[in-house]
């Protein structure tokens, strides 16, 4: 039986279409050469929602290092919803936008392991960057990063961090995929994701499921939302100069 994570892998390579669950490699395919410049554009304010017909997320027993990691169960890729069923931690991206606002690329990103949880759980980055990795726990974590390529995943690096407060820095450059999965083999419930982009028109939804993308050139765009536990879904948004467009992306009915 496929887990939710397996379903995400299995759905990769199919374009988002007509309200069905689909995703990533193709749906998040991006323009390879972004041209920055002056933009007199508008913005997009949106929300990502989830319908009622959602199966239960995978739960894993916290079965080791309980003095640090806590007790009970953990959900590697939680589907966290607001009262209005807004989805937290979805990455929303304009698809195939080749030119737009200036982009000061961040060169360094951070990930912290604390109480056997990765922080942040999800973030976006350019296709090449340096990742700084901190282990705050006095237990062995091994930060194991994979490049997702269609149904497959390939190790990008796998580094042991057996001591508390150790820091490693690793240069990352994706060559084939656009999504990085991070886990810890020693604690199989730990999960984090980095979605890479060739342009700056990306956002992560807040606890209400809301997002905002600014300084978008006037035009009509495909807007793709992706969540590690759900896959991807898309909608279209029409942006006019000096105006805010509204967008709703819905997973399920």
């Amino acid at each position: 039986m496929l887990s939710r994570r397996d379903m995400i892998g299995a759905s990769m390579g199919f374009a988002a279409c007509g309200g069905s669950l689909a995703l990533a490699g193709a749906a998040l395919a991006q323009a390879s050469s972004y041209v920055p410049g002056a933009v007199i554009g508008g913005g997009i304010d949106g929300i990502v929602r989830v319908g009622d017909n959602l199966s239960a997320a995978e739960q894993i027993i916290i079965g080791k290092d309980n003095h640090i990691c806590g007790e009970g169960h953990a959900t590697p890729d939680p589907v966290t919803l607001s009262d209005e069923r807004g989805l937290k931690n979805a990455v929303v991206m304009i698809k195939d936008i080749a030119r737009g606002k200036p982009w000061a690329k961040r060169e360094r990103f951070d990930i912290v392991q604390e109480k056997c949880v990765f922080h942040p759980y999800i973030q976006f980055a350019p296709r090449s960057f340096e990742l700084s990795i901190l282990n705050k726990d006095p237990v062995l974590h091994n930060i194991h990063a994979y490049e997702i390529i269609g149904r497959a995943r390939r190790t990008l690096f796998n580094i042991a961090q057996p001591q508390a407060n150790q820091v490693d820095r690793h240069k990352v450059a994706l060559t084939r995929g656009s999504i990085i999965e991070i886990d810890c083999d020693a604690h199989n419930w730990m999960s984090a994701w980095i979605v890479t982009s060739d342009h700056p028109y990306v956002a992560v939804t807040d606890s209400a499921g809301r997002f905002a993308i600014d300084d978008v050139p006037a035009g009509e765009f495909e807007l793709v939302a992706w969540h590690p536990g759900l896959g991807s879904m898309s909608t279209r948004a029409k942006v006019a100069s000096k105006a805010r467009a509204a967008a709703t992306i819905s997973f399920g009915a």
């Binding site: 194991h144 190790t155 796998n158 580094i159 042991a160 083999d185 020693a186």
Partner: peptide, 14 residues
């Protein structure tokens, strides 16, 4: 260097 493709990590930095 670890065994890439498996859970065995690299200990070079530690």
């Amino acid at each position: 260097t670890g065994l890439d493709g498996t859970p065995m990590p690299s200990y070079a930095s530690q």
